[in-house]
Design a protein around this nucleic acid. Sequence first.
DNA 1: ATTTAATTTTAGATTTGTCTAAAATAAAAT
DNA 2: ATTTTATTTTAGACAAATCTAAAATTAAAT
Lengths: 224, 224
Amino acid sequence: MTAAPKYSSSTENYLKAIFHLQKSDGIVTTNDVANELQTRPASVTDMLKKLKAQKLLLYEKYKGFKLSNEGRKVALQIIRKHRLWEFFLVEKLNFGWDEVHEIAEELEHISSKKLIDRLDEYLGFPKSDPHGDPIPDSNGKFTLPKQVDLLNLPLNKVAEVSSIGDQSAEMLELLGHKGIALGTKVEVKKKFAFDNSLELKFKNQLIVTVSEHVAKNVFVKYDE
Amino acid sequence: MTAAPKYSSSTENYLKAIFHLQKSDGIVTTNDVANELQTRPASVTDMLKKLKAQKLLLYEKYKGFKLSNEGRKVALQIIRKHRLWEFFLVEKLNFGWDEVHEIAEELEHISSKKLIDRLDEYLGFPKSDPHGDPIPDSNGKFTLPKQVDLLNLPLNKVAEVSSIGDQSAEMLELLGHKGIALGTKVEVKKKFAFDNSLELKFKNQLIVTVSEHVAKNVFVKYDE
DNA sequence: ATTTAATTTTAGATTTGTCTAAAATAAAAT
DNA sequence: ATTTTATTTTAGACAAATCTAAAATTAAAT
């Protein structure tokens, strides 16, 4: 038997929104949450009180709020579910990475823990979702990959291209030509002190050279 | 973008319950529905009025009710989703057929039609769920497999064991020993007029003999 | 054909999550 | 340091889905 859901979908959405806003902004306001959840500040205040009563939130009126340990724990489980479902939709059902978010917004509220752990196993315990965001494990821990530009990537460390700073057409042309795209696995084999240019090696053993200017605009993530 | 759910989970559950009760009982009462949904008759009456307002139900107070065409259509889509998810849970995530119902009760309310059609394709368009119940196709049609006891199964026709009449410990022991269980694929190769005993052949080529008494209590389904 | 019993429906409350409009508080600007 | 502006909270209301208790209707039983 699947346990009755501990928290409502609405509660889960608030926790998730606050979690995400805390990550980016550090401090989160009532208006931020209202904006994120497409609702009104008054509704947010109402919910903040309920979350506090459930000990999911530390909240003092007019002063601010943040997730409690329990609140963060719940948020991480929702995020885990969301990202695993996204991975499933893309990997198994051939959805595009850009069309899975809405569906995962619904699937993330399915309560069964056994289901999600089985799904995780079925998918091969993926570490990140189709957008490159990390998937928390069943204890809520996730290995946050380190994000740096190529210039700061240690030598001989395999990393994955995660974002591009300068997205001008010229830059994208250059990257396309060199074979650098989101998700590409790269390794820095040599760094020339003279002009800070780099020699990169791909999985397919090919080696290319990029300038400091390019290296500064290619961000990669790696474990450790 | 996933379309907003047309109907609430509650509405969907009522439609599904009424659909099932109509199948078995023919006529459905307020009390039946209350019992099925673990709620109170007064709550059922409230909902009947709402369903009528949405044209999902034909209802005259004190006189009775039944699903409208639209109501039946919606119910069938919910049942389709429920059974496809059950199939997924058993086939892909290795759940037991007896532990998937509750989880599917939640999954069946995920709204995306694209999701369910992709899932259907991914699963190979299964015709029936792990309990042997037929899965409606995306138009709500389903091919009802013929259900007979082994005695009435035509010779050389591959069928699947779908239910057991006499579920006494003695019978189950016998069936277990012979290798007959729910879902087992069988074929009748020979029928002895003398005592109506049968020779059955399994997928793995093994042949066993069962008495008329046993044959009468083993129900199978087959297409056509 | 009445009376009795069962079923169904109404009336009025309750809970959850939302809303608007107004009040309270904090932050920004002069 | 006040005043103005923006933010946050309260107060009161609403819709959905449920409940209890009582009333209305139908069915069963004498």
